[in-house]
Amino acid sequence: MSFDPKNLPAPVIMPWHGKWPKIHPTAFIAPGAVVIGDVEIGPEAGIWFGVVIRGDVHEIKIGARTNVQDATVVHATQFRAGTYIGDDVTIGHGAVLHACVLKDRCFVGMGATILDEATVETDAMVAAGALLAPNKVVPTGELWAGNPAKKLRDMRPAEIENIAGSATRYVGFAKEYLDLLKG
């Protein structure tokens, strides 16, 4: 059986109230992803299958080399708070990010939820399935887990190094998919 990229659904990229998403040409937007409105996506970022990024009520900014994995939802809070995601961030499958700040080189585990005006600082991690309540801050070098999330422990140096490694690996995956889709 041969593969024809023309048989895949295109990503949905659409404006909202006259604002179109700004997507760097080196970013990978997977087939079936949805990006709406006041959204900026940086160089070599990866927006994977089934992701919804809805910049209809406030802005959303996603930095360079950040990967937003399958089935993640990114939204904001009208008139109050956008969502700001830094460079080299890994966001696991099925996460929900709502009006929050993820600083450079942080990690959000699969199925985690980060709520309004919460912050995950550089080199910090929110575990899979955790719920980070509004206005909470995960400090640099800490791993938070649970519902509601709280500090589980300090991160090990190898875990912090793996955050940057994850971003690098996903840039490579995105390039492979871009090549595949070119046919």
Rank of each mutant, 00 (worst) to 15 (best):
A27D: 06
A27P: 13
A27F: 03
F28H: 14
F28M: 15
P31E: 11
P31W: 11
G32L: 07
V35W: 09
I36H: 04
G37F: 01
G37W: 02
D38R: 09
E40L: 00
G42W: 02
A45N: 11
A45D: 07
G46E: 04
I47S: 07
F49P: 01
F49H: 14
G50F: 06
G50A: 05
V51S: 06
V51Y: 11
V51M: 04
V51T: 13
R54F: 00
G55S: 06
G55N: 11
D56Y: 03
V57I: 14
V57K: 02
H58M: 02
I60Q: 05
I62T: 09
G63M: 03
A64H: 13
R65Q: 08
T66G: 07
T66R: 12
N67A: 14
V68N: 08
Q69R: 10
Q69C: 11
V73N: 02
V73A: 01
V73C: 03
V73M: 07
H75P: 03
H75M: 00
T77K: 15
F79G: 03
A81S: 15
Y84G: 00
Y84M: 09
V89M: 07
H93F: 02
H93P: 10
G94I: 07
G94W: 08
A95K: 05
A95D: 02
V96L: 15
L97D: 00
A99G: 15
C100N: 06
L102T: 07
K103I: 01
K103L: 04
D104L: 04
R105W: 01
F107C: 11
F107H: 14
G111Q: 12
G111C: 09
G111S: 07
I114L: 14
E117T: 10
A118E: 03
E121T: 06
E121W: 05
D123S: 11
M125P: 03
L132P: 06
A133P: 01
A133Y: 08
P134L: 09
P134R: 14
V137R: 15
V137M: 11
P139A: 13
P139L: 13
T140G: 09
T140W: 07
G141K: 10
L143W: 08
K150F: 00
K151E: 06
L152T: 08
L152C: 00
L152K: 15
R153C: 10
D154Q: 14
D154N: 15
R156I: 00
R156Q: 15
P157L: 13
P157C: 10
P157T: 06
